[in-house]
């Protein structure tokens, strides 16, 4: 995994408050700690609303401005992100960090052509760029010349995500935040996307922070996995540990939660109340963490 001493991204005991639907305040993240080394791929998995997207957006600087950091810190390459204004966080997204999100949360302009998009990217990068054809090739976009005149709307969803990866390679990003990028891809495309992430990491040392809604396929691409539940990290470790020997029943049932098309409504898999209660106790009582040294969460 990582023997480097300097972490690329470090989250320490982060507690964040977010506004709810009717204006009441809820806790979005509870004392979350995480460390990401350069060249590492970490997957954050959990249900909707468990805080994984909030953490990814805070790292990328695109979180809801109403979210308030109550305690803790987020540091990217030693510089703290929690106190910064949005303009400063914007500078981060123009180079060191690239965000690839689902179409719903970051829609792309359908009428723009790939050529115009590329021109924007090269302008944003301002000089220190890699050869774009090279980057396209390493992102899995073959025949880049044929791709240029096409509109973004006419591309396949996987190709749009690959463009995001190519952007990360062109501008030389050190961190790629894949925020539910697999959500609008079919399972095969999602698997292909993760495979290309691994290849990009092997080739250029790009670190990846990916959020997914399920534990499907994590063992194939992630170095470490963290399972989120109600704002805290329930358990964490290598994918093999999480999948083969999970400590909480919730994790086991969360992984099994993939309904078959043939299932009748009464047969749909659910997570039992007991498992949920156990997970709640674990998350609300103790600070949970995912860091380089320990590979399991603390005992409740």
């Amino acid at each position: 995994m990582s023997t480097k001493t300097e972490a690329l991204l470090e989250v320490k005991d982060l507690t964040v408050e977010i506004p709810g639907v009717l204006g009441e305040r809820q806790i979005g993240l509870r004392k979350v700690s995480l460390a990401l080394a350069p060249g590492e791929i970490v997957a954050l998995a959990g249900e909707a609303g468990s805080g994984k997207s909030l953490l990814a957006r805070l790292v990328a600087g695109i979180a809801d401005p109403r979210a308030k950091v109550l305690a803790g810190s987020v540091e990217f390459e030693g510089a703290s992100l929690t106190g910064k204004k949005r303009r400063a966080l914007l500078a981060l997204r123009r180079g060191p960090v690239t965000v690839v999100a689902s179409e719903a949360s970051a829609p792309s302009d359908p009428d723009r052509s790939v050529r115009q998009w590329l021109r924007e990217v090269l302008r944003l990068a301002k000089g220190k760029t890699r050869e774009w054809e090279d980057a396209f090739f390493h992102a899995g976009l073959l025949e880049p010349e044929q791709l240029l005149p096409r509109r973004l709307a006419d591309l396949a969803p996987l190709d749009r995500k690959r463009l995001g990866l190519a952007r990360a390679l062109i501008v030389g990003s050190r961190l790629l935040v894949s925020e539910e990028a697999g959500a609008d891809l079919d399972p095969l495309a999602e698997a292909a996307w993760y495979e290309w992430l691994v290849r990009a990491r092997d080739e250029s040392g790009l670190a990846v922070l990916a959020t997914t809604g399920s534990l499907r396929g994590v063992e194939r691409f992630a170095d470490r996995v963290a399972v989120f539940f109600e704002g805290g990290i329930l358990e964490s470790g290598t994918p093999v540990e999480i999948v083969a020997a999970p400590r909480f029943a919730y994790t086991r049932e969360f992984r099994a939660c993939e309904p078959d098309l043939a299932d009748l409504p009464r047969d749909l898999p659910v997570i039992r109340r007991a498992a949920v209660r156990e997970a709640e106790e674990a998350v609300h009582q103790a600070a949970t963490s995912l860091d380089a040294s320990s590979d399991r969460g603390r005992q409740p």
Binding site: A60, I62, R87, L90, R93, R94, V99, A101, S105, A106, P107, S108, D109, P110, E120, L124, R167
Partner: peptide
């Protein structure tokens, strides 16, 4: 339009989004 959000996520600032796009 929804894609101004996408531009913001990709790192464009307000002037670029308004005047450029």
């Amino acid at each position: 339009r929804p894609w101004t959000r996408g531009l913001f996520v990709a790192g464009a600032n307000n002037e670029e989004i308004f005047y450029g796009h």
